[in-house]
Amino acid sequence: QQIELKVGDWQSLQHIQSTAGTQWFMKEVEKRTNGKVKFVHFPAEQAAKARGLLDAAASGVVDIALTGSLYSPDRLPLNSVIGLPGLGNSAVAATKPLNDMVRNGLLRDEFISAGVVPLYAYALTPYQILLREKAVANVSDWDGLKIRTGGSTQALTARSMGATGISLPGPEVYTAVERGTVDGVLFPIPSVAPYNLQEVVKFISTNGSFGNFGCNLVINQATFDALPADVKEVMLEVGTEAALNVAKAQDDLSAGLLKEWAAQGITLIEFTPEQLKAYEDTLAPVSDEWVERIGKNNPNAKAVYEAFLKGVAAQ
């Protein structure tokens, strides 16, 4: 008989992560189960706020939800590893190890304890620096810059380079950059356009790795257990494909956007291998601090970080 599942996420229907990720997943599962599974989609925080979606799936308000690891760092502390700088230079590069570790590795248990089963996980494109007035090349160029950061890892990242990390709510970022309240902002390229930040910055880096963000599609544990074996299998199979599909789509979009904005007069910053090495060295203490602080309550923190690095390097 027909199985109907409610899906909640926070992006609009036009967002790349929705079209190439969540919606793509739903369509493929519907197709490959010959219509046995049907989804009812509640996009754009309709079902719950982004930060509440993990609980919404765990309690059964929805069956399936997209969750952001950094939206619930208290519930998914090890998964907050994705926020660290230096984990790969593309969405695909970070997604492969992330999805493996969330699905079957050291990052899985936190989801199970929260009452959900992870179907797939993907990373965004690594955060780049966008600047309104002055470019940066070397680490020393960051000295004294006011940088809008999202969350503590990014704030640490900015501070390690001598900049001041400034917290601002999303809706105030555009004004803050336009009026010069901040000198720059750390953002993943595909998220720049929804905020129209390309209108108010002159410089964008292309190959930095200043942290990342991880998204996980999760399903209520009891709902998952009650599914027929063949449906479970299809979901997990489609899940891995969806993770890579949405990662690649973001990388492609990012490349296209950068080209478009360069044509409109924005200067792209490409760090040299030496500069990238210097950033890596400068930012190493950020990861050390993460391992130390998360490690206090989670003995696996160091193992998680090292496994992630190894997974990135293995590609």
Partner: peptide, 23 residues
Amino acid sequence: QMGWTVAISILERLVFESTSAFI
């Protein structure tokens, strides 16, 4: 719509989520 237990689970985070907003 969704049964008693699920419906009241919405109350767990209701106030925190709506008020914990810098804006």
